[in-house]
Structures are given as C-alpha cells and as structure tokens.
Design a protein around this nucleic acid. Structure first.
Length: 470
DNA sequence: ATCGGCTCGCGCAA
DNA sequence: TGCGCGAAGCCGAT
C-alpha cells in the first residue's frame, strides 16, 4: 500500500518491470520538485524497489499554440528544477522538441528501462488522449497521480457540482489534506552519464533556444512574469507579507494590484496550490489575519473548476452549460448586437471601449488579465460578437495564445462562467438573455477605471506595472 | 446609501 | 413538498 493511494489512478495493470534501471516520473503539468504528491509516490516506489528516480520533462513545439511566451516561461523554470533535482539525487532529462513534428520518442526510450512510469492526473483533453494510448503500448505500469488538487479529485464524487455543494465537501476534507508535504528522499542517487536527449538550460541561453523552435514568434514573452519555482515562491512570499491583509477589501480593485498573480505558476505547476494554501493559512494564523477570501479562490473555486473539467465532455463548448443558460441563449441568438467585432479586432484591442481595450492590452503584454476585469472582458465579447459560438472561440483562442494560464481548468470555467456556468439567471435583457449582465457604468462606479487606464498606458510605455500601493 | 426583485435548480429538512 | 440560497450585478424605489 502506497502513501497517497487515493490520488493514484492506474492506467494499466502491467506488473513492475524487472531488471529496470530506475522509476520514471514524467512531469506533464506539475513542473516542480516540492509539494508534489506524484513525485513522492514515484520516490516511494523507487525506494521500495531499491532503484533511483528519473524525472522527465518535455517542452514540445507541437503543443497547441506553441509560442515564445509559453516556451520562455517553461524554460525559465528549468535551471531551478535541475538544481533542486541534483541536490536530491534525482536524475533529470529535459527534452526540447523544436521542430513541431511531434513529441519524439524520448519517453518511449526512457520507459524501456523503467520499472514503472508515473505522471500527472489532470483534466485536460491532450492528457486524456495520452492516457488512453500510452499505457497500452508501453509494457510497464503507468500510473497517473493527482498532484494538482489539495483534496484528491477522486474523493469529491463522480459528477459535476455547484460551488455551494462542493464547498462543504472540500471543507470537510481540508482538515486532513491542508498539510505540508515532506520533501523527496531517495535511497539510491541517480548516477548515469547525461542522456543524449537532455538539453541543459541556463538563463542566458533561453532566448536562443526559444528562437530555434518552430513556434509562433509573434507572441512575445511576458513583460511582467518570469517563470520558475523560485520566482513563484518569491511572489507568494511578497503577496503574504504585503497583500494578504488587503486582499478581502481590494481584490476587486484592479489598480491596487492586491491579488497574488500566482495563476501562471499554478497553471504550469511551478507552484503547488497546496503549498500556497498552507503558507497562506500559516501566515494568517501567525499574523492574526483572515485568509478566508484568498483560500476560497485558491481552493474552492479552483477545485470546482477541476471538478467541472473532469466531467465535461469538452470544455470548449456551450453544450456543457446548464439548461437555463442554453435555453436563454437560444431565445436571444438572433438579437441585434450593439457592436460586432471579429477575432482580429478583439485581438488587436480595437473596440470603441477604452476600458475593454486596456484589459486586452494587459493580456497581450503580460499574459494575464486581472480577474475582476476579466469578467467584464468576457461579457463584452459575448455582447459584441456575431454569435455566442464565435464569442466563445474568441475568448478561448485569445487565452490559449496569449495567457500564461490559458489552458488551465480555471480559465475554461471562468470563460464559461460568462455564459452562465456556476451562476444563476438574472433579469432578462437583449443578447445576454438572463445571463448576468456587467456594465461599463458598474465598473466605473465600483472600481478606479482611470487609475487602471493610466497603469496600462504606463505598461505600454515602460513595460512595467506598479508594485502594490495602499 | 440601502434594499428588494429579478429567476432557476439544487440540497436538505420535513 | 417547501424553503433557502447561490462568484463578482443591475435597476428602481425609498
């Protein structure tokens, strides 16, 4: 019986391969070394078998929307991962597939000498295709481990829930699961000559490596987010020290910069949600602060999104909406739109509305939109697109191309929230039907739009956003 | 400034 | 079967 058994999904039932050289861990979504259930399970298995542990990570130009922004962010995490694995005695193969022809055969080659292959359990369509294919043609055990959610997805129940239903379930389990994890310990150090496919990465080589990939070079690296676990931990620390006390009051005031800005790191798994939540809870207890609102977003809303994506046939379809939302959209499909823009006009921030344009510029330049204005951004795309389907496609494409958290369960759930997911009906009106309406006047009334516009103008001019201000 | 209604479906108590 | 209530709102009445 292994530790964290409730997080393990066995994708096949092959016996452990004898005469193997190591246990192999493939970091697909959780690209980190600490607070990592999957890596701990792999290490435990390796220790039981008296084998070393090998950590495999891949960055492929054949991934959807491969571009300089996403590649740079992932590559910036690699030197720190290498350093940490080296210290622990765990082997590391970082595989950069530059030509976009496909994922290559490195995984198969490494798996041929492994006792077992472990990877991340993650509600993603690309991962699901791998999960269906890989375990049958590799003759070794393949296990997927849930290292993303604080409360294991498998304990929540085999269906989609609403926030108010999932919240008490999560709360009940948190006493058990909101606890720090040990660091990885291996009995046998990995010592083999470097694999021929391993690409050593240092910070200075990243621009050159990025250029060498067949990818969309027009999407420039983020001006404000640098990738990596060390950077993520630095931002978490800074958030806890300066912003946790302001979070409840100012999180919906974009210009105050009171949010954690951790979503890119959470998305690539460079930071563990468990670590962030545990540190927030501990810090709040020490300092006499309230972390409730932050933990609600980090745990309840995030794991609600994972629950949605886990049971959605597809996350990019209006078919997944609740019945009342589908019905109201059907009724209003032919309503006259006040403005109609195409994808390119949205992409280039060329609408009549300077606030909307500013939110889009934040996405283009930083790779993220402030959560509160992102709702406004999404609702207006619905109102200003020729059809609901086109609006959905615009929102998803803009995120997948430009956002550092683009393919995250949270992002899909947030986009579909604009179409009524996890929400309820409101007063009926044109185009949106009974979907919740968000107005420019409301944004003006409740937030400091002028300050935000000045910040985005400053971002365009200097490439920087201000640090948090009181 | 504050408050209720809008409008639907789910979970739970009865 | 009925009741309460829900991710971030809006609007009109007081």
């Amino acid at each position: 019986m292994l530790k964290y058994e409730e997080r393990i999904r066995r994708l096949n039932h092959h016996p452990l391969r004898g005469g193997a050289r190591y246990v192999l861990y493939w970091a697909r979504f959780n690209r980190r070394v600490t607070f990592h259930h999957g890596l701990l399970v792999a290490a435990e298995l390796a220790n039981q078998l008296d084998l070393p542990l090998l950590y495999y990570e891949r960055l492929s130009a054949s991934a959807p929307y491969a571009n300089d922004r996403l590649h740079t962010f992932v590559l910036e995490g690699v030197p720190e991962t290498a350093r940490r694995l080296q210290q622990l005695g765990v082997g590391y193969v970082f595989d950069l597939v530059c030509d976009g022809s496909g994922p290559g055969d490195t995984l198969e080659r490494l798996a041929a000498q492994a006792a077992a292959l472990l990877t991340d359990d993650y509600p993603d369509a690309v991962a699901a295709r791998h999960d269906a294919r890989v375990p049958t043609h590799l003759s070794l055990p393949v296990w997927a481990v849930d290292s993303s959610c604080i409360v294991p997805m498998s304990l929540i129940g085999e269906r989609q829930y609403a926030a108010y239903s999932i919240r008490p379930k999560l709360r009940r389990w948190l006493a058990k699961y909101l606890k720090p994890l040990p660091s990885v310990r291996v009995r046998r150090r990995y010592s083999a000559p470097p694999d021929p496919r391993h690409v050593p990465v240092s910070a200075s080589k990243i621009p050159c490596l990025v250029r060498s990939c067949v990818a969309d070079h027009m999407v420039r690296p983020s001006l404000t987010f640098r990738g990596g676990a060390a950077e993520a931990e630095r931002r978490l620390r800074r958030f806890l020290t300066h912003n946790l006390r302001r979070y409840a009051r100012f999180r919906n005031q974009p210009a105050t910069r009171a949010t954690s800005d951790l979503s890119p790191y959470l998305h690539f798994g460079q930071l563990s949600a468990l670590e962030a939540a545990w540190e927030a809870k501990s810090h709040a207890e020490q300092e006499g602060l309230i972390a409730e609102e932050f933990l609600e977003e980090l745990i309840v809303r995030r794991e609600l999104a994972f629950n949605f994506c886990r049971f959605a046939a597809r996350v990019d379809s209006l078919e997944e909406l609740p019945a009342w939302a589908r019905v109201t959209l059907e009724r209003h499909a032919a309503d006259r739109r006040p403005f109609v823009y195409r994808y390119e006009q949205f992409r280039d921030a060329e609408t009549h509305d300077e606030l909307w344009n500013a939110t889009q510029k934040e996405l283009l330049l930083t790779g993220k939109i402030h959560g509160y204005y992102r709702m406004y951004w999404g609702k207006k795309i619905i109102e200003w697109s020729a059809s609901y389907q086109e609006a959905l496609e615009t929102m998803i494409t803009l995120h997948e191309r430009f956002a550092l958290d683009g393919r995250d369960p949270n992002t899909y759930a947030n986009i579909l929230w604009c179409f009524g997911l996890h929400d309820r009906p409101w007063r009926e009106r044109p185009v949106l039907g009974t979907l919740r309406y968000i107005s420019r006047e409301g944004m003006q009334r409740k937030t400091d739009v002028g300050a935000y516009l000045r910040q985005i103008a400053g971002l365009e001019r200097t490439g920087r956003l201000p640090e948090p201000v009181e």
